[in-house]
């Protein structure tokens, strides 16, 4: 690791000011991706601004027909939250399978979505549940938030403060993990909310995406069989020693069918 300056932010405004002024500074939330990256010397930030001390960023609450999760809420707390478990059990289940227990005890939802790792779990839920990402500046619709590989709509001094998930009628997440890293090779989140069906796919491409043909088919008939004749094109999907793009394309369908079955 290269050395850097370290600062514990007192408030969101405080953190925003620092990263706005120093383009080389980085925010650290749970650090579960950032610190391994630093250990490999793959990044050389001038400073780390630690969001860990900002109480207002933590917590889970129900707001009308939505569950709002503070950005610094840990995966373990989402997984165990009675509110999440009763309102969106699929989201609690997704959180309960991110990384491993030690990762879930540190990793946060805000850190995960702001990093937008192509194999992270949360982005699929954000997209499929049509969540709203709340920042210190604005509210961003899920479809507008995830831009490309490790790229989001966040501005240089913009910080995720919470994510608001509308409560669906049905939802489920199925992950096919990379056997070595245990990140998603393919993760498919299906959700039916207010009659609308959305399918978020992570792991398969450079960035989370919606499988719109599946959404249309499931909109007509909420049944895994509705997906049987659909296929995803392998072009543009990720390919590595663990899974070719063709295999990933196939798995999207399998995981989607299984998720629909699991959602009931």
């Amino acid at each position: 690791m290269y050395d850097f300056k370290y600062q514990k932010a007192a408030s969101v405004a405080d953190a925003a000011k620092v990263i706005g002024a120093d383009g080389e500074a980085k925010l650290v939330a749970g650090g579960m991706t950032l610190i391994p990256t630093l250990k490999q010397r793959l990044a050389k930030p001038s400073a780390l601004i630690d969001l860990g001390g900002i109480a207002e960023l933590k917590g889970i609450r129900r707001e009308g027909n939505a569950i709002v999760i503070g950005a610094m809420t840990k995966h373990v707390d989402v997984a165990n939250s009675p509110e999440v478990k009763s309102a969106i059990p699929a989201l609690a289940e997704l959180a309960s399978h991110i990384g491993d227990p030690a990762v879930r005890n540190r990793g946060t939802i805000g850190g995960s979505i702001a990093n937008n790792d192509p194999a992270a779990d949360y982005p699929s839920a954000v997209v499929a549940l049509n969540a709203t990402v709340i920042t210190n500046k604005r509210k961003i619709a899920a479809d507008d938030f995830f831009k490309a590989l490790f790229e989001t709509a966040l501005g240089s001094d913009e910080i995720v403060t919470a994510v608001s998930f509308p409560i669906p009628e049905k939802a489920a997440y199925m992950k096919f993990p990379n056997p070595a890293s245990r990140y998603a090779i393919v993760g498919t989140f299906v959700a039916k909310t207010g009659g609308n069906v959305r399918v978020g796919v992570t792991g398969a491409g450079p960035c989370v995406f919606r499988w719109k043909e599946a959404e249309a088919a499931l909109g007509k008939s909420w049944n895994g069989d509705a997906l049987k004749n659909l296929s995803v094109k392998a072009d543009g999907l990720n390919s590595d020693i663990h899974a070719s793009s063709e295999y990933r394309a196939h798995l999207i369908g399998v995981m989607a069918r299984r998720a629909v079955a699991k959602a009931g």
Binding site: V28, I35, P36, A102, V103
Partner: peptide, 25 residues
Amino acid sequence: TSQCGACVVHVDGASVKSCTLLAVQ
């Protein structure tokens, strides 16, 4: 790569990988 878990300790009662946490944190 923060995977093996040989470094697990408890911080405020929860298991964490001490290789993936800065001392200052």
